[in-house]
C-alpha cells in the first residue's frame, strides 16, 4: 500500500507541436504497483472498509470493473488475504484476463453486448441477494474513490507543478480522478479549469472510459462539476498513442491516448488566444495490456 501514488510527472514535448507558452504534463500512473491509477481508489476503499469494520476476513470483496480496478483489488486482496469476486465484461483485453487469473481473482464474465453496465448490474444483483456475504465497495458510488484523488493525485499535481497548473484534463470512467483531483485543484486555485474527456460515441474502443449520455452515470460523478467536457474518437486516441510511442518512447494505454488528444486540443485552443498554459493530464495506464490491439499496425 505504501507504494501507491507519488507517480512521476512527464512533460510531453516531442509528440506534439505546441505554440510557445503551452506546456503539457502527464502523471505516469502505471508506476503504481498494480500498473494503473486505479490502485489509488482501490487502496483507499479497502482501507476504509477495514477501518469502518465493514470489511472482515470472512467477507468476499465484490465489485464490477472493466479491468484496472479489478487488478488493483486483486493485488491488494492477495497481499491482505481476502477472497475477491469480480464482475467483468467478457470483452476486456486478453491481457487483463490473464493478469486477473494470475492474481487468483474469481471472475464472473458478463455479456460483452451489455458493456460495463452489464457488469455493474450483475455485481448489484449478487450483492443484493447475499449482502452479508460480501464487502461491496462499489467504485462507482463510493466517495472514497474520489477522496483518494483529493488526498493524493490532486496534491501531487499541485506540488509537481509548483502551483502553476492552469488546466486539468482527465478522462472519465467512474469519474473518481476528475472529481477528486479536480476538487482539490480548484480549492487551491479556483481559476484552474477542469476538463472532462469522454468517448465521442457510446460504442467505442476506449477501455475504461464512459460515454455518460448513454451509460449508468456513476453516483460519484457530478455531470455539472467539470467546466467543460471534450469528446474524443477512438481513432484519435489511437493516433496519439502511436505518436507518443514513436516520438517519446512511451507506451501508453487507450485512455492515456484519449487524454493526450484532448489536452492537445485544449493547448491549441488557448494558443489561438495567445495565452500561456500549464495543462496537466493523467495517463491512467501504459500499453502492457493492449499490445495485441490492431491499431499499432495502422499508419
Amino acid at each position: 500500500m505504501d507504494l501507491v501514488g507519488n507517480t512521476p510527472m512527464i512533460e510531453i514535448t516531442r509528440a506534439l507541436t505546441l505554440a510557445r507558452g503551452q506546456r503539457i504534463f502527464a502523471k505516469a500512473e502505471w508506476a503504481n504497483p498494480g500498473g494503473s491509477v486505479k490502485d489509488r481508489a482501490a487502496a483507499r476503499m479497502i482501507l476504509e472498509g477495514e477501518r469502518s469494520g465493514r470489511l472482515t476476513k470472512e467477507k468476499i470483496i465484490l465489485d464490477a470493473t472493466s479491468g484496472n480496478t479489478g487488478i488493483a483489488y486483486a493485488c491488494i486482496a492477495a497481499a491482505r488475504g481476502y477472497r475477491l469476486r469480480l464482475c467483468v465484461p467478457e470483452n476486456i483485453s486478453p491481457e487483463r484476463k490473464s493478469i486477473l487469473a494470475a492474481l487468483g481473482a474469481e471472475v464472473i464474465y458478463t455479456s460483452g453486448q451489455d458493456g460495463s453496465d452489464g457488469a455493474i448490474l450483475e455485481a448489484r444483483r449478487r450483492f443484493e441477494s447475499a449482502p452479508a456475504k460480501y464487502f461491496y465497495p462499489d467504485q462507482y458510488g463510493n466517495d472514497d474513490n474520489w477522496r483518494a484523488h483529493f488526498h493524493s493525485t490532486g496534491p501531487e499535481i499541485w506540488k509537481q507543478t509548483r502551483g502553476r497548473i492552469t488546466h486539468f484534463v482527465a478522462t472519465v470512467g467512474t469519474g473518481g480522478t476528475l472529481m477528486g483531483a479536480g476538487r482539490f485543484l480548484k480549492k487551491q486555485n479556483p481559476a484552474v479549469r477542469v476538463i472532462a474527456v469522454e468517448p465521442d460515441s457510446p460504442f467505442h474502443g476506449l477501455e475504461g472510459m464512459k460515454h455518460m449520455a448513454a451509460a449508468i452515470v456513476p453516483k460519484i460523478y457530478d455531470l455539472k462539476f467539470a467546466d467543460e467536457t471534450m469528446y474524443v474518437s477512438t481513432e484519435a486516441a489511437h493516433e496519439s498513442i502511436r505518436k507518443v510511442a514513436r516520438t517519446e518512447g512511451l507506451l501508453v494505454g487507450l485512455s492515456s491516448g484519449a487524454a493526450l488528444a484532448a489536452a492537445e486540443s485544449v493547448a491549441n485552443r488557448i494558443a489561438r488566444d495567445r495565452k500561456p498554459a500549464v495543462i496537466v493530464t493523467v495517463f491512467p495506464d501504459n500499453a502492457d495490456k493492449y499490445l495485441t490491439e490492431r491499431f499499432w499496425k495502422e499508419s
Partner: peptide
Amino acid sequence: ISIVPSIAGG
C-alpha cells in the same frame, strides 16, 4: 452475428 464493443468504465 454479434457486434462487440470495447468495454467502458473503470
